[in-house]
């Protein structure tokens, strides 16, 4: 029997704060926010757990990459979110390390008529520092810096705008965001 504790103790208020952190990080690429309140089983980080509790439920389909496809994480997600687990191609949300999520070309990027029908990737990172990428685009006054797992995949993703996937990068209790609209260059 795995441990199912570690959800939000006060869901409405904690989810509201967690969403504001998600909104700020996706609206201001390069900014890192604290995301607290969740205590999911390892290797799921508290920040990624909070993103799941805030955005994922029965109405969306979740893909677990091999790095996170473990019984205790499956049980925790089934109990707290109830999202059906699906293959990468069908997923609205995907969770895993960047390596485990490869190839990212499998994920939905929306259609020209409905660019919102695209996947959101929750990418677990060792660290969100030091920066290795320069970011420009909506949400950024001039330019910003961020730690990304690689550069080329996100430059390709930007080239398809308005199609493309959107990312949250999580590490410990920290989160940063990268929408498809951001132009990415190596530092």
């Amino acid at each position: 029997m795995s441990d199912l504790s570690g959800g939000f103790a006060h869901a409405p208020e904690q989810a509201a704060r967690a969403f504001r952190a998600c909104l700020e990080t996706l609206a201001r690429p390069g900014q890192v926010q604290r995301l607290e309140g969740a205590a999911p089983p390892a290797p799921l980080s508290p920040a990624a757990g909070a993103v799941l509790l805030t955005l994922v439920d029965q109405a969306v389909r979740l893909h677990l990459a091999p790095s996170h496809d473990r019984p205790e994480i499956r049980d925790w997600i089934a109990f707290h979110c109830g999202a059906p687990l699906v293959a990468a191609e069908e997923a609205d949300f995907a969770l895993g390390s960047w390596e485990a999520l490869q190839p990212v070309g499998r994920f939905a990027i929306g259609t020209p008529a409905y660019p919102d029908r695209a996947a959101t990737l929750i990418v677990e990172m060792e660290t969100l520092a030091p920066p290795n990428a320069r970011l420009t685009g909506p949400g950024i006054a001039r330019d910003a810096e961020a730690r990304l797992p690689e550069i080329a995949a996100f430059a390709d993703n930007r080239a398809r705008f308005p199609l493309g996937f959107d990312c949250f990068f999580t590490s410990g209790d920290r989160v940063s965001g990268l929408p498809r609209s951001t132009k990415v260059e190596a530092l």
């Binding site: 909104l23 919102d116 695209a118 959107d166």
Partner: peptide, 14 residues
């Protein structure tokens, strides 16, 4: 709220 929040984030992305 989760449904609206998901829509808001896609709106921010596009």
């Amino acid at each position: 709220k989760r449904m609206i929040r998901r829509a808001l984030l896609k709106g921010i992305a596009v």
